[in-house]
Design a protein around this nucleic acid. Structure first.
Lengths: 245, 245
DNA sequence: TACCTTTACGTCAAAAGTACGTAAAGATTT
DNA sequence: AAATCTTTACGTACTTTTGACGTAAAGGTA
């Protein structure tokens, strides 16, 4: 007695046919706004429960393509900078019964696997360019500042933690450009680094370091409308983005 | 008309029931012997074709446990130092028809997925402690020096390449202990690092560096039977191994 | 005994990282 | 208009790390 009027049931029916079972993608989409790291979250239909965007891998699709597709749908952006950062493969990752109850998904109507292995990807996007849109299991899609994120469904709080650790590790290797607009000032770049690392940096030394990296190109314009001395605008000279997708 | 006398058919039948489809584990088991990195490979039954050890994830088992199990069976060792290093998730990773022909697996008798996503793990083991044993699709299991590895089945040459790159990256963070016996000399540790990195290191500077790391503990004994000045033996003071499993 | 190789240290200079100084730009206050 | 304040865009000086190279002692071989 399967209730095909329920959109969740229809969704899982389709996924069950088209996609790979036991395996999913969870996406931590990072944005930077008002000196805060933000993560894009979804509120499940008719509930007050939030989760990361995610999805399943089609049988004839690479996992990178699947991640790209899932994140694209939530952000409205293409060619996202994606990084695969961890596989969450515990046999029991969270309380399944509790989770399905919270989502109000009628589990008994769904023929789906008992456990899911999740491939964790993070995306670095330009906050202002994103047009958040929910999928059809969710009512709302919006940015959450990292330090205000509520208790999420599944093990998604944990996944975000691991994503941030990976992001910090990446930052020590190379300056991160993908979270800022095309042009930005050095102080703005510094705020971004400080926010990701979680501690303040010395402006003089930061300036020296990013200059020495050779990846920045100074434009002739300055940022207008600042209350103080107008800072120069810069652009990343490194042409190619080097992530997947 | 399924040939249940064929062991491969029986194996895949069992895997099909017990394990997760579309998903596999490939293990790059590194050993260090005679100043060379070695990788454990398997020769498929009745062929001259070699591949990495691998396996599938049981439906109620974590992926780390599965990796531990698969590698354990080939090496005879437990509590292996394992590191998950990449997910190989291309829609087409290799020429399937060619591969199945080479393995002489009767594909037409097997109900298995059209593509496989592979979780790449590497293991660092003490070469002398390993007792290589083939699984029942293979006739032979033995060490291959890294620079003599033949053209392998599937995309396993590529997987080994990626594993080595990850291993090199890890080495820059922390000295690697798991490939050496409990006690070793500084020059032996240096040879290991040189082999992984692929270039020679200055003995004086290497000595200083590992001493400064504070992770080594000098024993009172020296290595006997060397043609020259007997070097001291050392042990890693860092008690806890920090990998999965 | 002379000689050679290897170990187990040491020295010194270059490079990278860290603390902090300061003049100029632009707004705000007196 | 002048003084003040904050911020930028540099610079200087010191410290730590890294890298090139020196060398005496240990143990074998010619």
């Amino acid at each position: 007695m399967i209730d095909y009027n329920n959109p969740a049931v229809r969704y899982y029916q389709q996924v069950s046919d088209e996609c790979i079972h036991y395996l999913s993608i969870d996406g931590v989409i990072f944005g930077f706004h008002q000196n805060q790291l933000n993560v894009l979250l979804l509120r499940w239909k008719g509930t007050n429960e939030w989760s990361l965007p995610g999805g399943f891998i089609k049988k004839k699709e690479s996992v990178d393509e699947a991640a790209q597709r899932v994140m694209q749908e939530r952000t409205g952006l293409d060619k996202l900078y994606l990084q695969q950062f961890h596989v969450f493969g515990e046999a029991t990752r969270y309380d399944q019964e509790e989770t399905w109850r919270k989502t109000t998904i009628p589990l008994q109507h769904i023929k789906w696997s008992e456990r899911t292995i999740s491939l964790g990807y993070y995306a670095l996007v330009e906050h202002s360019k994103v047009v958040p849109s929910p999928d059809f299991l969710t009512d709302e899609c919006r940015w959450w500042p990292l330090n205000e994120i509520p208790s999420l469904l599944f093990d998604h709080n944990h996944i975000i933690d691991v994503a941030i650790q990976s992001l910090r590790k990446q930052l020590t290797d190379q300056p991160i450009s993908h979270l800022l607009p095309e042009t930005f000032t050095i102080p703005e770049l510094q705020r971004l680094h400080e926010t990701i690392l979680g501690y303040p940096l010395d402006a003089r030394n930061f300036y020296k370091k990013v200059m020495a990296s050779g990846t920045l190109e100074r434009l002739s314009e300055r940022r207008a409308g600042t209350p103080h001395k107008a800072p120069y605008l810069y652009r990343f000279a490194g042409t190619g983005h080097d992530a997947v997708g």
